[in-house]
């Protein structure tokens, strides 16, 4: 009965276009402005060591944000990524005795299992994503602490040390790993049926079912993938720090990842995934923190600025949706 009332028409197209423009490209503009500011006012910003440092530091958030972008694209959310990092880190330390390959495999597998639980709760039991993954956020961190007996473990392993700190052609290996992940995820989103299904489900789950999209399987896969990426971030973090500290690793990283995704222009309401935007969003938040710190503004200011940016980003999305 409402069919006649829903003919699409862009009211106030000018305003809408402006909001579109800001939402689509704001993150790149912000990033460029920030880089320009730093080149002008921050000493040694343009030096290779600093650039390298910024990239290395953004790696865990960037990897997790890529997985998060996929989940948000389906109109879901994954709060458990920080805990998954901790579990992976704990498992890595625990199984290092069997060699680095086995340890890494176990860590990734452990993460994937958490993702499987998330996915089953969401896609089979129909629990809201925020609730399902909240349970794993609470329980997962506890599990990581139990595995590690609550202790910080130092991790000495040549292979891991190489992963954590070596460079190939001056590019740190962790950055290369993140780039590889970004390329794979980018291809997944733009070139595969799976990627198409993700955004279809996020855009209209009911229509997707009727179009024969394997909704259940797709959701299950995306939560496993997101958790596996979080576990990878956990492994990388552990390798870089040469230590596994399950009570701290990945704390609040779900917030940074969600922020990167949202600031990057992927709407929380699902149906679209922006990979480049997500990477730019992660980098933007990283540079904001770095800029504030190098200009003697404390860490606390970083958080407050981030908070304002999150709200601004969702306000723009909201206005855009309403326009």
């Amino acid at each position: 009965m409402t069919a006649t009332e829903t003919a699409p028409a862009a009211q106030a197209p000018g305003r809408r276009r402006l909001l579109d423009l800001v939402a689509e490209n704001g993150v790149y503009v912000g990033l460029l402005l920030l880089i320009a500011f730093n080149l002008l006012f921050t000493r040694r910003f343009g030096e290779i060591d600093n650039i390298r440092l910024q990239f290395v530091q953004v790696v865990p958030v960037a990897i997790i944000a890529l997985g998060m972008a996929l989940v948000i694209g389906t109109r879901g959310i994954d709060l458990s990524v920080g805990s998954v990092m901790a579990i992976a880190s704990a498992l890595l330390a625990l199984y290092l005795g069997y060699g680095p390959v086995v340890a890494i495999a176990v860590a990734l597998l452990g993460g994937a299992v958490v993702g499987l639980v998330n996915g089953v709760l969401v896609s089979v039991a129909g629990v809201q994503p925020i609730v399902a993954t909240l349970a794993l956020l609470v329980g997962g961190r506890g599990l990581a602490l139990v595995l590690a007996r609550g202790r910080l473990t130092e991790v000495f392993d040549p292979t891991l040390a190489t992963i954590g700190s070596a460079r190939v052609f001056e590019v740190p290996i962790v950055v290369l790993i993140a780039l590889a992940v970004a390329v794979v995820i980018g291809i997944l989103v733009s070139r595969t049926t799976f990627g198409r299904y993700l955004v279809a489900i996020g855009g209209n789950a009911e229509a997707s079912v009727l179009a024969g999209v394997p909704v259940r399987r797709t959701l299950l896969t995306v939560y496993i993938l997101c958790a596996a990426l979080a576990a990878l971030a956990g492994v990388i973090q552990t390798a870089r720090l040469s230590a596994s500290d399950p009570s701290f690793v990945g704390n609040l990283i779900e917030l940074s990842a969600i922020t990167a995704v949202v600031v990057g222009g992927t709407p929380l309401s699902g149906g679209r995934i922006r990979i480049m935007g997500t990477l730019a969003g992660a980098m933007l938040m990283q540079l904001i923190a770095a800029t504030l710190i190098t200009h003697n503004l404390p860490d606390s200011a970083t958080r407050m600025v981030q908070a304002v940016i999150i709200v601004a980003a969702v306000l723009i999305q909201r206005q855009r949706g309403a326009a």
Binding site: P298, M304, A307, V308, V311, V314
Partner: peptide, 30 residues
């Protein structure tokens, strides 16, 4: 922000989570 601007409670309070913690650190000299 939630009732008037109709933003998702989850994301709004997530932002204030960051903000309030930042403020706490700011007041206490990091």
């Amino acid at each position: 922000l939630i009732a008037r601007a109709r933003l998702a409670p989850f994301i709004v309070t997530l932002a204030t989570l960051l903000f309030a913690r930042g403020l706490a650190f700011a007041v206490s000299d990091e």
